[in-house]
């Protein structure tokens, strides 16, 4: 057998075996991966909208949001997935809102690659909990070097103003987009 034919045969053989093995592994792992992602989504929704027991996925003008219900079936809030640019990369959030979108009930940072120890602290509870009860009208604001006074204010993280500002602007922008769409 000439080397050329052998080369093609061997490489084809290896690629086919590899493809076969991987499709079997994928077959077993993909349901688990999907379940993981769904579980994470559920957890973040129920975290940002307290009292929520169930939710409906709604899409309006290509904006996806989750309408949350309690046991009796009445709407208790809206969970809005939001995303935007941070200091070093994309930040993904889940924002919990009252049904009329006037107050934030909680936020959860889902994905971020901010500087560890500085901007990365946007993922800490002490920062995220500040947003509970914050008013969204006219807009959420951040303050530096002093305690928040108004209902719309949160305190920025020392040394991570850009990341804090990014979170606030992502929230404002995405809420506005939802309001415009509704």
């Amino acid at each position: 057998m000439s080397t050329r034919v052998k080369m093609i045969l061997i490489l084809t053989l290896f690629a086919s075996i590899s493809g076969g093995v991987l499709s079997i592994v994928y077959l077993f792992s993909s349901p688990l991966i999907e379940a993981n992602l769904l579980e994470e989504l559920k957890k973040s929704i129920f975290l940002v909208v307290p009292n929520a027991k169930d939710y409906d996925e709604k899409v309006i003008d290509e904006i996806t949001y989750f309408e949350c219900r309690d046991e009796s079936g009445s709407t208790v809030g809206i969970a809005l997935p939001a995303r935007g640019n941070g200091y070093q990369g994309v930040i993904k959030l889940m924002v919990g809102l009252t049904p009329d979108l006037s107050r934030i009930t909680g936020i959860k940072v889902l994905e971020q690659i901010e500087t560890p120890g500085l901007g990365g602290r946007i993922g800490e509870d002490s920062f995220q909990n500040q947003f509970k009860g914050v008013q969204t009208e006219p807009a959420v604001e951040y303050v530096k070097n002093r305690e928040p006074e108004k209902d719309t204010e949160i305190q920025a993280i020392t040394g991570a103003t850009i990341s804090s500002r990014s979170i606030v602007s992502i929230i404002n922008k995405n809420i506005q987009m939802l309001k415009d769409a509704l």
């Binding site: 080369m7 061997i10 490489l11 290896f14 991987l22 792992s29 688990l32 991966i33």
Partner: peptide, 29 residues
């Protein structure tokens, strides 16, 4: 059995297979 002209390509296919398995495993568990 691997001809020396395609050995690197073959090795990369083998390595990539194992890497993808690890990646899927970590995502699942």
């Amino acid at each position: 059995i691997v001809p020396k002209q395609v050995r690197i390509a073959t090795f990369v296919v083998i390595i990539a297979t194992f890497v993808t398995m690890v990646d899927l495993f970590l995502k699942a568990f």
